[in-house]
Design a protein around this nucleic acid. Structure first.
Lengths: 155, 155
DNA sequence: CGCTTTAGTTGACATAGGCAACAAAACATA
DNA sequence: TATGTTTTGTTGCCTATGTCAACTAAAGCG
């Protein structure tokens, strides 16, 4: 897979030399992410959502009542971006900003009924999409890939 | 690493539930890419380059004379983006658009002397950065991760 | 009571990607 | 040859994503 059929200036099929790229983790990660994201991202767009929205929505569903800043930290984002994300999710009636009982500055972000239904729906869809995209890997390879990435991310 | 210290409405440390996210390939890929990219990306910024520029530059160095569309296909991009990428690399005097001998529509993209020097320099740097980022993985795990990603990307 | 910090928000700005349109050139074919 | 189709590079528009600075309101702290 290091070489790929292309065309040179004579339009004859030629093989491209990828040099060191195939043995670079960053390069393979970039390509894999693009592939996996492109697939489910198209699906999410049908609901007016992005990958970022999906991740935050799942977090809210599993941790109702957190303030926006905590959500931002949890996804490695910042307050400014989280404002726009929550704006979108709230406009779609998937989450609600409620008054925080102990701090009048912050919002307790809770899931709506429609949000709960959306999460259930998307959880099913994302599993199906992942299984399809990772179809070339058997179950053992998939688990191995996942745990190696988790180990890398935990450092 | 599924849980992370945050704060609830009482500012007491609380553990966040990530639900299904940790077992999603897309989620782990996203985090890993951010981590690996953040490191080398900062380094590249010092040269006015991005990860995308680096990948294309390496390809041009190993395959001088290809037209822009072939380069775009090789990195899974498209013609429009490749125009901007080559614009940048050419402005930095790292590559040159030369006339293609057989097709007056297309450009033969070649590497300059400064581009060759930049590639040599960055090849050394990227290996050092990768070794540091992937430090939590032993050699066997690193190779395993790389080959699993390659298998996924080849499908 | 002041002083500092924090939560949320807004606006300006930069980057990256997708998509559509376009001219010039190459190609296919009747 | 003439005509229609495809390809290459290019540009502009739109969206997503991210940074940064500033601001208000509220909380925390001496």
């Amino acid at each position: 897979m290091d070489d790929e059929a292309l065309s040179n200036e004579n339009n004859a099929p030629v093989s491209i030399n990828r040099d060191i790229l195939p043995v670079l983790l960053g390069y393979q990660l970039r390509r894999a992410t693009t592939r996996v994201y492109g697939s489910f991202g198209d699906h999410l767009r049908g609901f007016g959502l992005t990958q970022g929205h999906f991740g935050v929505l799942v977090l809210i569903g599993a941790n109702p009542g957190l303030p926006q800043t905590a959500l931002a930290r949890a996804v490695g984002s910042n307050r400014s971006l989280m404002v726009r994300t929550i704006d979108r999710l709230e406009a779609a009636d998937l989450v609600r900003r409620e008054a925080s009982p102990n701090d009048r500055r912050s919002h307790a972000i809770v899931i709506t009924e429609a949000g709960r239904a959306m999460i259930d729906r998307l959880k099913t869809d994302v599993r199906r999409h992942e299984d399809r995209v990772a179809g070339v890997l058997n179950a053992e390879e998939f688990d191995s890939l996942l745990s190696l990435l988790a180990k890398l991310n935990a450092s």
